[in-house]
Design a protein around this nucleic acid. Structure first.
Lengths: 201, 201
DNA sequence: ATTCCAACTGAGTACTCACTCGGCATTTTC
DNA sequence: GAAAATGCCGAGTGAGTACTCAGTTGGAAT
């Protein structure tokens, strides 16, 4: 691992755990085992470092979801929704520091003034919502999912997995105990309901 | 409004908009129109100020929800879930700075070391989840809601409204356009499904 | 062997921060 | 009306900050 990568790595962990403002360059330097000057040799400022971390997260997430989409088996849309939910949670577990960092307010405030930041965040957000939307759209066409607005349903699915990750991070509730109910609820929320006597027009 | 209240007010707004660390006492002083010393006359430290804000939020939220519970009309549980969702969103709109502050990571990190902070956050969290849980429990007993685990269902409802508030704050998606779908999805998620041929033991 | 250069160092710099403290003004108490 | 108390002020303090820069290192190129 190059020194630059080591800095990015340690910074991701520290920024996500302690916050951007609460992590000093001095602390990052000692954690990484380099001199302060080395950090500024590789990154032109602390904010630049954050942006490069964010770009790395974007690349990682887009790659992982591309892989997932390539490899996913042919299933009904409703089943793909379940898979997508589980994959999201799996990935959030694997990349926990990165996902935690994505939930920091600082990034979204920065996005107001920094176009690059905003671009990355939107790309990540769209990628995360898209896999749900794709699955919902598929489910609507194969009949496993009711006639719900796909994007909106996808956003609501996102709020739930995102909330679960948050519960885990904040220790407010044992998130793993919620996974099964999340899946079951999502299915009830989306599935085609077989009802008779609905003929009109 | 006393000076102390004015400080609490301005601090709530600044902390939620710019973040705790990114708001200096000097800025808070000029915003409020008092001297820096005045702030430390009323609050023994910046962290103490934050905790007093949090306590105020707790008191406000618990009072509002108590009022809501007192005044809510007799309805089926499923309908009360819808009312509760709408009331949550209404309150988050009314108390937007306070709700925004509640989403800051800083508070949850502070809660790890500060018992008072943790107590307040848990009280707020439980209060917010409880109204959903109560409605779900009622719905299960009046037959309008299926036999779902009440607490878990309530937590999932919470993730959705909380996510909507987040969308609004971050400007990622027009949250108001999601409200109708949120209600509809929640109903589908919870409602008793009339299915025949389900006799077993 | 010499030159060159990218990678790295860490003491130094200018600045911001939360917080203090001695004093001032007004109100309350006796 | 003296004394005490309360509310308030803002320059000052020391710790901590992001960032700079002159200088060192080690390896590759000539």
């Amino acid at each position: 691992m190059t020194r630059r990568e080591a800095i990015l790595d340690a910074a991701t962990r520290l920024f996500s755990e302690k916050g951007f403002k609460d992590t000093s360059i001095a602390e990052l330097a000692t954690t990484t085992g380099v001199a302060e000057g080395t950090i500024f040799y590789h990154f032109k400022s602390k904010e630049d470092l954050l942006l490069q971390i964010l770009e790395g997260i974007k690349v990682d997430i887009l790659r992982e979801f591309d892989r997932y989409i390539e490899a996913r088996p042919a299933k009904r849309g409703l089943d793909q929704v379940q898979d997508a939910l589980l994959f999201y949670l799996y990935l959030a577990g694997q990349m926990d520091s990165q996902f935690l960092l994505l939930q920091s307010h600082y990034l979204y405030r920065l996005a107001d003034t920094n176009g690059e930041c905003r671009t990355h965040l939107e790309a990540i957000f769209n990628c995360l919502v898209d896999i749900f939307e794709q699955a919902v759209l598929l489910g609507r066409s194969d009949g496993s999912i009711a006639d719900v607005p796909a994007r909106k349903a996808a956003l609501l699915l996102f709020t739930m997995v995102d909330g679960l990750v948050r519960f885990k991070n904040y220790g407010l509730y044992d998130a793993s105990a919620l996974v099964a109910e999340l899946i079951a609820s999502s299915v009830r929320m989306l599935q085609q309901q077989e009802k008779e006597g609905r003929s009109r027009s």
